[in-house]
Structure formats: C-alpha cells, structure tokens
C-alpha cells in the first residue's frame, strides 16, 4: 500500500488485516520497487496526490511496477490520478489509462457522499465477488470518463451514469472506498489480493 501525504492508506491496511491478507504500508521507493501487488488508496486532491508521489520518489518505482504487469488497485483518488487529465485544479494525470476526469454538474449536490449502487458491466476476476445490487460508499466530486468503453467495469448513477470501476490490463480501480463499503467492499479487496493481473 503506497503511503503518501494526504492518503487514508491506514484504513485499507486495517481492512486487509481483518481479511488476513499480508500487506505493508510504505513510503519507501525500494519497497514499492519490489512489490508484487500494489494498492494506491486515497482521499485527497489530484494535484496534491501526484505531487506527493513525485516528491517522495515513489512515482518512478510505482510506474515501473505497473508497466511490468504487477496487479494494481487504485481507490478513489487512486482511480482519478490514473487518467490523462483531471478538471480538479486542471491537473495532468499519470496517463496510465486513457481518458479524462470531470467534475459532477452542479445540478445536484457535489460532492456525492453516500452509498450508491454499483452495476458491473463487464466480467472481471476482481469484480466477480460483487453481488447484484451491491451498494458501495462514495465520496467524490469528480468522476472518470475512460476513452475506451472496454475499460469500464462498473457503473453508478449520480444524475447520469458514471464509471465507478475501471479495468485496464493489470490495473483495477474503484471510485468508491472499497475499504469502507462493508462486507461487499472487503470481498472486492479479497478478490484483488487473489488476482494475478490477467483480465480474464
């Protein structure tokens, strides 16, 4: 679990601990460089997150591992930084998944805060654990719009439908806080821990 200033990584750690999944919270670039599975958790702002990863020397080993095919899970801001660009502070993203991050329109309350239904739209080893009608916990003002519709694994309605789970090669990311989505979220973390990084 990648630890950076502005993250809530400990919550993810507590959830993995409860599941009996060995994990380590680290801000050490050498540990990231040797990781066999990576989680980028987060509450936070896009720019602060990327700046923090860069300044702490974590971005380079993280990028190298993800390119090498290591299974990667992004959560919340860990999903939003994956794209090419975010409207939040007009921030360039990591560009690992093609697409943009946009702000919800102001015709509804922003941020979206609460439990909302996640509908899985494409079969994937990590999301197979999600039951039909699963409700997960969201706290977000921004949402991703992947360029390739095939990268959308799950959708959720807040006004229009938006992409709530992303799947792209060895990358999976949830807009909701899996670690705070009760038994449903814990099941998703468990299936990520068992995933080999191959999409089907």
């Amino acid at each position: 679990m990648v630890d950076y200033r502005a993250g809530n990584a400990p919550s993810v750690g507590f959830a993995l601990e409860r599941l009996g999944i060995p994990a380590r919270l680290t801000d050490d670039p050498a540990v990231v460089a040797a990781a066999t599975r990576l989680i980028l958790p987060g509450v936070g702002a896009a720019r602060a997150t990327i700046d923090s990863l860069r300044e702490s020397g974590l971005l380079e080993p993280l990028t190298e591992r993800v390119q090498a095919g290591v299974p990667f899970l992004g959560i919340c801001i860990g999903l939003q930084v994956l794209f090419d660009h975010s409207e939040e502070g007009d921030t360039e993203g990591l560009g690992w998944v093609p697409g943009m991050v946009r702000r919800f329109a102001d015709d509804r309350r922003v941020p979206q805060i609460g439990w909302n239904e996640v509908r899985v739209v494409r079969d994937h080893p990590v999301t197979r654990a999600l039951p039909t009608g699963a409700h997960c916990y969201f706290v977000n003002s921004y949402y991703a719009t992947p360029s390739d519709p095939a990268d959308v694994l799950g959708v959720t309605e807040y006004g229009p439908e938006f992409c709530s789970i992303v799947g792209h090669r060895n990358i999976v990311a949830t807009q909701f806080h899996a670690e705070k989505s009760g038994p449903v979220g814990l099941a998703l973390l468990e299936s990520f821990a068992a995933w080999d990084g191959v999409e089907c």
Binding site: P10, S11, F14, A15, V43, V139, H177, S181, P183
Partner: peptide, 30 residues
C-alpha cells in the same frame, strides 16, 4: 477504525492541518 469498515468521521480538538492528517492516518475518512 480497526473494527469498522464503513465511513468514519472524526471531530473535536482539530486545530491544524497536521491534526487533520493525524486523524486520517488513524483511519478516518472525513
């Protein structure tokens, strides 16, 4: 935070950015 896997907000005695960060590190979301 070790026992509860639903969102968790913490308040009281927050005076600075560092206090906020400590609370997040202790497992709160908000």
């Amino acid at each position: 935070a070790h026992h509860v896997f639903v969102p968790f907000t913490v308040g009281g005695g927050i005076r600075s950015l560092d206090d906020m960060f400590e609370v997040l590190k202790a497992g709160a979301e908000k």
